[in-house]
Amino acid sequence: MAVAPHALTREVVSARIQGRRADVGGTVFKYVLLSALLVTIAVLVILLYSQVDRGSEVLTGRLGDFITSKYSSLPTRSGIIQGINGTLTIAAFVIFIAVPLGVGAAVYLEEYAQKTRLTRFIDVNIRNLAGVPSVVYGILGLAIFARALRNVTGGASVMAAGITLAVLVLPIVIITSAEAIRAVPDSIREAGFGVGATRWEVTRSHVLPYALPGILTGTVLSVARALGEAAPLIVVGAKTGFFTGGDFGDLRDNFQALPSQIYQFSRLPESSWGGNTAAAIVVLLAIVLAVNSAAILLRNRFEKKR
């Protein structure tokens, strides 16, 4: 194509590169995205504020008493120590059962198993299991851990609840760990095999350390999920009224956990119990936040070492 000779003088170039074409679409899109973020944050802030506000009397007036007392029929004397004990114990069950099992299964699926139709079938089913409603796991827990295995668990105990929630989050641990392991570059595996390391040596020294931050993220998500579940606990048999016990370490005894306790409080008259409900919600949020922060700190430490 013949182009008319056009002198690239300073003026011509300047006019061309300073042309301002309004990018309307881009600007609109930017603000749409921003408002999506703001709406999300606003909802969270409002929720948090309303709970702190509702629970302020309890949180400021008798917080120490509230978190160290057992449940009482008197709202002004009732506390949530049984719920905290149950929730922490359940978290421990999740960490000590679901994490080793889940990471082990993920390592097997990704590093050892041949990619056959069977493993793909298993993989798809694990993904489906992660989407099963938690109340279904509650029924499973009731049938197996609270009833069939009551000689081991002691019936509707914190042990039965902990194992149920460990099973509930197991698919999430497997999926997130498998994804973290899959994200390890093959070049690292090849480097290990290339100097004569066995599969186990490569997995232990290179794949797992590299995947650790991702595995930790998945673990945190699953523990946080387990901490917040109420439905399966109620089905398995968390105590919904006054009960003795619920001390820390009583694995085979009656139990209560924070989410189900919040549910229980919320069904009592709002005028006298509303403050307790809100305060329990704030305490549960604080525990979840603490667990998440610890794990994020841990993850950052491992990521730095890469």
Partner: peptide, 13 residues
């Protein structure tokens, strides 16, 4: 006994 050097440098992290 038969070592290998790869196309892209792949040191362990």
């Amino acid at each position: 006994r038969v070592g290998m050097v790869f196309q892209k440098p792949n040191p362990f992290p």
